[in-house]
């Protein structure tokens, strides 16, 4: 980001992007639930070139004890990028970026979870990025919401998100890696799907009011499509056992 210079033509004469997508087209998304046996709930998301596993443990007694909230559960999300997830080896362990993402993801999920039902507990959400290709925080958050639902944790609403940005002077949806690196702006937004309340919004770069409105409109529409994929991932897994004997 930051509008780094490149010779790449990010949008061609036909208005198509580097990977052949139109401006409001999403990358292919695939979500799989219950990929880990030992987690209470888990999900793996493949979003374009991103491959991310989210796992949920809890609610369980919060440790260390001073982190306990007498009135509600505390959501502790940990976002981590594997050393091999990017082209150049990333130094393992938490850094400023992953600490920030962990914080914003925790807050986004805390809004959705009915935390009042579990006082003094913590709900751990681990987001492991195995392969990164731009938009990992949103992909991780989208997978986490599926993992939370799969863990049977009560939630007011599902959380889903998407990014939009400005590339070659044009507003486009779901930035790819080159667009993220050489674009002019990046706007990740996550919402509660049904109510439309925004639970995460960050912006890098500059957008005019009109551009911002156009980007949010695109994201609104994309979130509806993403939530359908989330729903399908959850329902598809249990479709076989959803068939019961009898009927009215």
């Amino acid at each position: 980001m930051g509008g780094a210079k490149t010779d790449l033509k990010l949008i061609d004469e036909n208005g198509l992007r580097l990977d052949g997508r139109s401006p409001n087209e999403l990358r292919p998304i695939k979500i799989q639930t219950d990929v880990l046996d030992n987690a209470d709930g888990s999900a793996m998301i493949e979003w374009g070139g991103n491959k991310i596993i989210a796992s949920v443990y809890g609610p369980r007694e919060a440790y260390p004890k001073h982190t306990q909230n007498m009135d509600m559960a505390v959501v502790k999300a940990r976002y981590n990028m594997a050393a091999f997830s990017v082209d150049e080896r990333k130094r393992p362990g938490p850094d400023r970026r992953s600490i920030e993402i962990s914080k914003v993801v925790s807050e986004a999920l805390q809004t959705a979870i009915l935390a009042e039902q579990f006082p003094r507990t913590q709900i751990d959400v681990f987001i492991e990025v195995l392969q990164a290709d731009a938009g990992t925080r949103i992909a991780g958050l989208t997978a986490s919401a599926v993992a939370l639902a799969a863990a049977g944790i009560p939630m007011r609403d599902m959380v889903a998100g998407c990014t939009a940005g400005k590339v070659a002077g044009q507003i486009v949806l779901d930035l790819g890696k080159e667009e993220d690196n050489f674009g002019e702006a990046d706007l990740p937004i996550a919402q509660l799907v049904k109510s439309g309340k925004i639970v995460l919004m960050q912006m890098d770069g500059d957008l005019s009011v009109e551009e911002f409105n156009k980007a949010t409109e695109m994201i609104d529409d994309a979130i509806k499509r993403i939530s359908e994929i989330q729903r399908e991932a959850l329902a598809g897994k249990y479709r076989d056992i959803a068939l019961e004997e009898g009927g009215e």
Partner: peptide, 15 residues
């Protein structure tokens, strides 16, 4: 006996 599909719902869904 015929099989009937039970409806699966997700959090936030109006039922």
């Amino acid at each position: 006996m015929e099989k009937k599909e039970r409806k699966i719902v997700t959090p936030g869904e109006e039922i």
